[in-house]
Simulated assay, not measured.
Amino acid sequence: MESQKSRFSLHLPELVLVVLVVISGTMLALSSGGFILNFKNVGFTALSSVQKGIGIVTSGITGTFNAVHELARLREENAFLTEKLKNYEYFQRNNTEITNENLRLREQLGFSTKIEQRNFPAQIIGRNTDNLYSTFTINKGSRAGIKKNMPVIAIQNGQVGLVGRVISVGVETSMILPIFDEKCTVSARVQSTRDIGLVSGQGSASGMLSMRYVKKRVLDELNYGDLIVTSGENENYLRDITIGSISKITPLDYDSTLDIEVVPVIDFSRLETVIVADLKELNPNLVVNQ
């Protein structure tokens, strides 16, 4: 055993030699600048990594801030453009409505100067509609010259049609009984055959009218779409004003007459303006076509 231990042990001279070799190598390395260069490389690499990380974080924060700012700007711009579009659409609707109103008034004014009877253009300002009694209120009354039982007509889509008659007159307003009311009866003719009958309403503004007392003998002469016009008899209504057109013809088994269904020429749900006529006075504004 003792011989083995002495085999691996170093003597003092040998240990001193090893230490001197290590110190000499270290001094040589330091003098050549090898360690300094390595330290510089290590420091530069570490610093570069830190700077790169800071740059990435800073870029991310800046990008996020810019994105938020841009989003806010886009939202503000979108709100502004949306409001501008609403205003544009509003003005467009107003312009369209004004243009249409001007066309209606011009059409009405043109017609009111062509009829022989004195007349009063008026606007509907109220409606009272149910199954038993239906009326329109207009903005003209006795102060304007309106009288009870005056006939009321209108021009709609270029077509002149019968509306009804005045049943009540106030100072500034009047009440009209329309032809679709059950209490309204009008003497009328089939325009093509000149056969006479009575037209009455069925109580609904969107419903049909009924013409009675036309003889069965003219059944073969009648056609769907034939116009029904006022007869002008009894001086209650203007003559040959369109009431509507035939939509159905039914021979009555128990009578010698026909039951004729009539579609009104006037769309009462869209009616806004009317013309009240005075059959007893001439039109002072009459324009005679040369």
Rank of each mutant, 00 (worst) to 15 (best):
K86P: 00
V262R: 01
T257V: 05
R7H: 12
L282M: 11
G126S: 08
Q191C: 01
M208C: 00
G55K: 13
S134W: 01
G158F: 02
S31Y: 11
S31W: 09
E97S: 04
N41C: 10
D255G: 06
L17Y: 15
F111V: 14
L258M: 06
F120A: 06
H11C: 06
R217Y: 05
E107M: 08
F8K: 08
V190M: 09
A205L: 14
S210Y: 04
Q92A: 15
E233P: 05
L105F: 08
E261I: 04
V22A: 15
V22R: 13
S24Q: 03
A79F: 15
K147H: 12
F91S: 11
T129V: 14
I241H: 02
K248G: 08
P151R: 06
L47W: 00
V169Q: 02
L209P: 04
S256P: 00
I249E: 07
G207Y: 02
N223L: 04
V169W: 02
S59M: 04
V16R: 14
N128Y: 03
L12E: 15
T257M: 06
R7I: 11
N236K: 07
A46M: 05
G170K: 00
Q108W: 01
I36K: 13
Y133M: 07
L219P: 00
L109P: 00
P284G: 07
E233T: 11
T185F: 10
T173K: 11
E2C: 03
V22H: 10
L219Y: 12
V50R: 13
S31L: 13
V68M: 12
L222V: 02
L109F: 05
I155L: 06
G110S: 12
P284A: 10
N283Y: 07
G232R: 05
D255F: 09
G158N: 01
R106A: 13
I36T: 13
I167G: 03
Q159S: 14
N139S: 07
S168T: 11
A79H: 15
P264D: 12
T242G: 01
N66E: 08
S31R: 13
Q202N: 11
I36E: 13
I249S: 03
I275H: 05
L227W: 00
F65N: 11
K248R: 14
K148V: 11
R143P: 00
R270E: 14
T99V: 01
T58Y: 10
P251L: 03
G203D: 03
L10G: 07
R127A: 09
V50C: 10
E221M: 08
L12D: 13
L71C: 08
E83F: 03
Q156V: 12
L85C: 02
M1V: 08
I98S: 12
A67C: 07
R7V: 09
V265P: 04
S9D: 07
V287D: 03
Q159C: 04
V57G: 01
F39I: 09
D259E: 14
S247N: 10
E233G: 03
H69C: 03
Q156L: 14
E221W: 04
L47T: 02
S49A: 12
K248P: 02
